[in-house]
Computed example of a mutant assay.
Amino acid sequence: MTNPIADPGHGHSPAAWTAVVIMLLGVAIGTFAFFMAYEVIVWASAGLVVVGLLVGWIMAKVGYGVNGPKYNPKGH
């Protein structure tokens, strides 16, 4: 019996990893800036999270997403 629900790929792609790393840096910098009360840096780091989303989306559209032609999955 086959599973009717297809595997979405779990995001193991250069596009996903790049987006997550950029957004993680944004959150880490923003957390530190919030703790130190640097309001401008908090907002800049929020912008960095948005940039991470855009970079991941653009990389997926260019072909580095899970089903993209430039994505080369590695065996586990």
Rank of each mutant, 00 (worst) to 15 (best):
I58L: 15
A37M: 14
V66C: 05
Y38V: 10
G63K: 12
N72R: 11
M23D: 01
F35S: 13
L53I: 13
K61L: 13
Y64A: 10
K74I: 11
G11W: 07
G9Y: 07
H76K: 13
G56E: 02
A15K: 05
K61R: 14
W57H: 12
I5N: 01
A28I: 13
S13A: 12
L54G: 06
M36I: 04
T18H: 00
H76S: 08
M1V: 06
D7T: 01
H76A: 15
A19V: 02
A33K: 07
A37K: 13
L24N: 01
L48N: 04
V42F: 15
I58V: 15
W43L: 14
F34V: 02
V62D: 03
A37C: 02
S45M: 11
I58R: 11
G52T: 03
Y71C: 12
L24K: 00
N67W: 08
V21T: 08
L54C: 12
A33E: 09
I22Q: 03
I22P: 02
G30C: 09
F32N: 04
W17V: 11
F32W: 12
I41T: 10
N67Q: 05
V55P: 06
F35H: 14
K74W: 05
F32D: 01
V49P: 04
G11T: 10
G56D: 03
M59Q: 13
P4W: 05
P73A: 07
V66F: 10
A44V: 15
M23P: 01
M59N: 09
A46R: 05
F34K: 09
G11C: 10
K70M: 11
G30A: 10
P14D: 06
W57A: 15
N72F: 01
G26K: 03
A46W: 09
K74M: 11
I41F: 11
L53M: 14
A15Q: 05
L25E: 00
K61H: 10
A60G: 10
G30M: 09
H12A: 07
V27N: 04
K70V: 00
V49D: 04
D7I: 01
K70C: 01
A16Q: 07
S13R: 02
G30V: 06
P14F: 11
S13V: 04
V49M: 13
V40S: 14
M23H: 01
N67F: 12
I5V: 15
I22L: 13
A28D: 03
M36A: 15
A60T: 15
K74F: 07
G9A: 07
G47K: 07
G65R: 11
F35I: 12
W17D: 02
A37Q: 14
I5C: 00
Y64H: 10
N3K: 09
S13E: 02
G30N: 10
I41G: 02
H12Y: 12
V49E: 05
V50W: 08
L54F: 14
A37F: 08
F34A: 13
H10S: 13
K70G: 00
I58S: 03
W43K: 05
M59R: 02
F32K: 07
P8C: 04
L54Y: 07
L25V: 13
W17H: 14
L53Q: 06
P73H: 08
